[in-house]
């Protein structure tokens, strides 16, 4: 669907994006992750044709961005960071204007706007000036704007920034609903968002790609062992350590919390062993009461941190 080759952007002497190559398939929901200033927005701006790459090529379907920018823009719906819209216009007028520019058929225009207002929950604010809307509504108008032409590709730059948890959940729900048939690219620095919404994650740092894969494969790619948290009653740390260190493959046991006779420990296992069965067998042989027992998968957060940490 989208092929990016050696994409580079310089702002003066500053290299914002450095030879990025990406191949995005139809139907993928791609999360573009990275710390602030990593070049996420610059990449998206080049994909949408707003900025001209210093070097490299972008192809969307059969179109090249430098030769057929209009055709590409017709395929893409784009929500820029913080959705900067015309503040003087009413929501309804604005959506009508976008529909006109997007060349939506006159007869379909009204039903299209109604449908989008329904989908994005805009019905109550249709006749208010955009400048008077709350951030959440503003963002939703931006989303409706981006989806006006039923784009095959939807590009959202930090769609949930500045929203409250309910609004974030709503926006994610919308993304999931439309993501079934469309290619979506989301940039974010909120990791849980990428984990929740995306099926592929690309992490960029200082303008280069440092990781690329599905959320699961990324989790396995860092060769660190599993973490197991166990909460016990009627046990003390010394006895637990004595009992569990005898299992082959346990690297570390540390107490997270110790109150009276209840104890919570974190067990670090050697990569890539799964020791849950063994640990449970040991605990069963004692008179400890098992209150909690779970294994954490390495979260995206740890991967993100280890990949983008300043050297």
């Amino acid at each position: 669907m989208i092929q990016v080759q050696g994409l580079t952007k310089y702002y003066g002497d500053l290299c914002a994006v450095d030879h990025i190559s990406l191949d995005i398939q139809r139907g993928e929901i791609l999360g573009l992750l990275g710390p602030n200033g990593a070049g996420k927005t610059t990449v998206l701006r080049m994909l949408t044709g707003y900025l001209r790459p210093t070097e490299g090529t972008i192809r969307v379907k059969d179109y090249a961005i430098d030769k057929n920018p209009l055709e590409i823009k017709r395929l893409i719906g784009y929500l820029p960071e913080s959705a900067p819209l015309y503040r003087d216009m009413l929501v309804y007028d604005y959506l009508g204007y976008v529909a006109d520019i997007r060349e939506i058929d006159k007869n379909r225009k009204f039903t299209k706007i109604r449908k989008l207002a329904e989908l994005c929950g805009l019905n109550e604010v249709m006749h208010q000036p955009i400048g008077e809307l709350s951030k959440g509504y503003n963002q939703r108008v931006g989303l409706a704007h981006a989806m006006m032409n039923d784009p095959e590709i939807l590009i959202l730059d930090e769609p949930t920034s500045g929203l409250d948890p309910n609004q974030i959940a709503e926006i994610r729900e919308i993304i999931r609903r439309i993501g079934k048939e469309k290619t979506i690219i989301i940039s974010t620095h909120i990791l849980s968002e990428a984990e929740a919404a995306c099926n592929r994650v690309v992490i960029i740092n200082r303008g280069t790609i440092v990781a690329d894969g599905s959320t699961e494969t990324l989790g396995q790619s860092t060769s660190q062992g599993h973490l197991i948290t166990v909460a016990l009653q009627n046990a003390d740390l010394e006895a637990v350590e004595r009992e569990l260190y005898s299992i082959q493959g346990i690297e570390d046991i540390s107490a997270l919390d110790e109150q009276g006779d209840s104890l919570e420990v974190r067990i670090t296992c050697r990569y890539p062993e799964d020791l849950r069965g063994e640990i449970y067998k040991r605990i069963k042989q004692t008179n400890w009461v098992l209150m909690e027992f779970h294994q954490e998968t390495r979260s995206l957060e740890t991967i993100f941190r280890s990949l983008t940490k300043e050297a």
Partner: peptide
Amino acid sequence: HVGSYEILLTMPVT
């Protein structure tokens, strides 16, 4: 100033 320039230019207009 508002940034709507970006929205304008990413719509299919020359």
